[in-house]
Design a protein around this nucleic acid. Structure first.
Lengths: 260, 260
DNA sequence: TAGTGGTCTAGACCACCAT
DNA sequence: TGGTGGTCTAGACCACTAG
């Protein structure tokens, strides 16, 4: 543990406790924030892989030279961010995009009757291309950078309901387009195959009119209203790693948002 | 403080500290959760009014017969729920729907260029009526209960953009329809005039086609795509207190959602 | 200077889980 | 039975605010 300012020497010599809490340490950023960032870095760089168990709070405290309570506060906040999962009596684990989380945590579209229909996908096409301006802006890419574009049609309750184009940087996901088959839950693939964990996302919604091709794919009339969802997904370190645009039929489904 | 099970007598006699943390108390629900619920009740029943300062953590701890750390944990969670606001060096305050929060915290519609245009309202009509089936379902009302219905047109960036109907139970807001004028920020009125604090809300979104009357009000073509937002607002105690349906033009605006 | 919330530590006991 | 996270207390010092 290397704190921001003073106290580093004392800490390195093993009397961290005496310095950190009770002593006259200036502490630019709170200790628990520093511990949290160190742990976040391990989650981000692959030192702690998804699904694996973390050292116990006391072990982490000893390693970082802080008290168990400080480690706990850092872990609490990582748990709120869903980067780790606590299981009483067992330990603390690195969060994983299991099938359920991948499918439902980031998919806010529900059936009007309350059910969650399984969103099965049919891939319409996969190709690599130079990123266009919108993709470069969303993904913070340089001019000339390449992306994979995946077009697919997803079904809800057995009916075509979501027409979707996914754009992902080729540099981050080499060979993604050659995966056979492209799985239904891309985030699991990003995590397992490329070590990229999607931690959060931003979605921007608009109501738009269906174009001719979209109408045909979704089996609706041209000009019908569709819910357009633009999503940017961010990795643990905050980098944007995927951009997708989904056109959704909302005659029997709706998008649910909770405001606190 | 009346804990769930055992320890009540000891606590009432003043040695709560000895019993609660170190003793053999079974503790069905954690102490801090019980403290939190007690404080939530005070916020809900008007004992602690919006804007007022709370007793200090030590005073609350003494009153409830727990340690300051336990009160702190309860307050931390209430702060996450935005029911209280902490200000270092000053104290902890009951959260208030100030102009900004009322306008922007629950309004997720942003201009595409990133600006937040002030949503000015023009009231089209206010009337009392028996709640229809949809309103009864959303607001958990009995057959025959009455609601106020407020129709209004809201402008964003100077253009008509949101056509909205608000439904609020008459029993909860007597005389609401006679307020002159009906203010732009209803939640502030609910709070200041009726003691009802909106704590959270659920929104369900769909893309719909504009009807003739809607198209005229919004100055668009009939059949154009609109974003329909159904919102149910809940008070601190969890009761639904308002239902509103907003039809939004999204050609220059979008709805922003964050997924964690 | 006094009071408040914010951080940090230390140590106790509980509930849960695997063995 | 031993180890884990979960709760609770106690007491210290810091940073901020106000008089």
């Amino acid at each position: 543990m290397m704190p921001d300012k003073a106290g580093a020497k004392a800490r390195a010599e093993g009397n961290a406790a005496a310095e950190a809490g009770h002593g006259g340490r200036p502490a630019a950023r709170p200790l628990y924030v520093q511990v949290k960032e160190l742990m976040r870095a391990r989650l981000s760089d692959g030192s702690w892989k998804p699904g694996r168990i973390l050292p116990s709070e006391f072990e982490l405290a000893a390693e970082f030279g802080v008290s168990q309570g400080t480690v706990r506060k850092a872990l609490d906040e990582l748990a709120v961010e869903r980067l780790v999962v606590r299981r009483q009596g067992k330990g603390t684990f690195v969060a994983e995009h299991d099938e359920d989380r991948a499918l439902f945590h980031f998919l806010k579209l529900l059936a009007d009757d309350g059910g969650r229909a399984l969103p099965e996908s049919r891939v319409l096409g996969v190709k690599a291309a130079r990123a266009n301006a919108a993709e470069r802006a969303a993904l913070a890419l340089e001019e000339g950078a390449k992306v994979w574009r995946i077009d697919r049609l997803r079904h809800l309750s057995g009916r075509p309901a979501i027409l979707e184009q996914v754009a992902a940087p080729e540099a981050l996901f080499p060979g993604l387009g050659k995966e056979e088959p492209v799985p239904n839950t891309l985030y699991r693939l990003y995590e397992a195959r490329y070590g990229v964990t999607v931690a959060r996302a931003e979605e921007r919604l608009k109501a738009v009119a269906a174009g001719a091709a979209e109408a045909q794919a979704l089996d609706i009339a041209p000009g019908a209203s569709l819910l357009a969802i633009d999503r940017i997904a961010f990795a643990i370190d905050g980098r944007p790693v995927e951009w997708r645009r989904s056109l959704c039929l909302t005659d029997r489904h709706h998008y649910l948002a909770e405001l606190v």
